[in-house]
């Protein structure tokens, strides 16, 4: 889900505690902890974990000497190495910055059907990812054959242009090499352990209720992420892989995010009223009329989604990786 959905869910969780709401009405900032907890897992990943990951294969091209074939060869060799040694490798693709607002775009595709890596040079783009007109250079495409067997993965081109480039874990699994997108995401930060840790820290610093608010907010984030195609490493450090989610939504689907934000805002308002000395809201009117558009929208979304799913059957792994690509893009857009 999008950052704002997780954040507002965390705040909403906090408002279910009458003493937290009453403390907030008397000047306390305790409910802010809910928001912090709600966004903490992604904060840890996108502001810390991604930068401390050490790559084994580093693609760091120079804009003037871009050799697509050389890059494709290096990536394919890395995948083959995993196939031969069964040892995990981290592939990192750096961006090419040309100036304060200009970046040289390139893209990579893992064609698992034909067993190839394809690398293409793209146009020069600005930080808003708008291409500079006529900046697309005539540069040969790079194609390299992969000899190791591959698990199907995200089949589209992954574009590398602005800010920070993506990384991939190349790992031997079930007799084939799995190309795992953005391996630093949804690991320890998205686990029950993290919920417990943050809750304990909040509890020690600000009291028992604050601990519950903080811990449950992290937990809410982790649970919301289980609704997607890729779950998370829920039982870290006991487990090492990210589980499969419920496959109900993609992280950046507009309607489920809007449903979450709208419902949480309504929950917050309802709880603030419910725990006030003189409640004003009639629950029947509030939930029966004002909230009604949200579930209707959600039902519409699921009807559309299941129709679309029936028409195109995309492998689960590809859907999971697509979700990760989209989530990273959201962080870039924000």
């Amino acid at each position: 889900m999008k950052g704002i959905s997780h954040f507002i869910t965390g705040v909403a969780v906090g408002t279910f505690f009458p003493d937290a709401v009453q403390a907030a009405a008397n000047g306390s900032f305790i409910l802010v902890l809910g928001g912090i907890g709600g966004l903490l897992p992604d904060t840890l990943d996108f502001k810390y974990a991604r930068f401390v990951e050490e790559p084994d294969i580093l693609v760091d091209p120079h804009p003037e000497q871009f050799e697509a074939q050389k890059i494709a060869d290096a990536i394919a060799a890395g995948i083959d190495r995993v196939g031969a040694t069964h040892k995990k490798q981290i592939l990192k693709c750096n961006t090419m910055r040309l100036g304060p607002d200009w970046w040289q775009q390139y893209s990579i595709k893992f064609d698992t059907q034909n067993g190839e890596v394809i690398v293409q040079l793209g146009p020069i783009v600005n930080t808003s990812q708008i291409p500079l007109p006529e900046s697309l250079r005539d540069s040969p495409e790079g194609r390299a054959k992969i000899h190791a067997p591959l698990l199907p993965t995200y089949g589209e081109f992954t574009t590398i242009d602005i800010f920070s480039g993506p990384s991939f874990a190349l790992e031997w699994r079930n007799g084939r090499v799995e190309i795992d997108f953005i391996p630093w995401h949804r690991q320890y930060s998205h686990s029950l352990f993290m919920a417990l840790l943050f809750g304990t820290i909040c509890g020690l610093l600000f009291g028992f209720t604050a601990g519950l608010v903080g811990g449950l907010a992290v937990m809410a984030h982790v649970l919301e992420d289980q609704l997607g195609y890729l779950g998370s490493n829920l039982l870290w450090p006991l487990t090492k892989v990210r589980s499969t989610g419920l496959k109900l939504i993609h992280a950046t689907d507009a309607i489920p995010n809007f449903f979450t934000v709208g419902t949480c805002c309504m929950l917050i308002l309802y709880n603030l009223d419910r725990f006030s000395p003189q409640p004003l809201i009639d629950p029947l009117v509030y939930w029966g009329i004002f909230w009604l558009p949200f579930p209707i929208l959600l039902v519409y979304f699921f009807i559309q989604k299941f129709r679309a799913d029936l028409l195109k059957r995309i492998p689960l792994l590809a859907q999971q990786e697509a979700d990760l690509v989209a989530e990273t893009q959201e962080v870039v857009d924000a």
């Binding site: 966004l39 502001k47 800010f163």
Partner: peptide, 16 residues
Amino acid sequence: VIITYMLMAEWPKGGD
């Protein structure tokens, strides 16, 4: 809460 979100939802623009 608004301030916290503003600050937390600003993501890094470098680090490669």
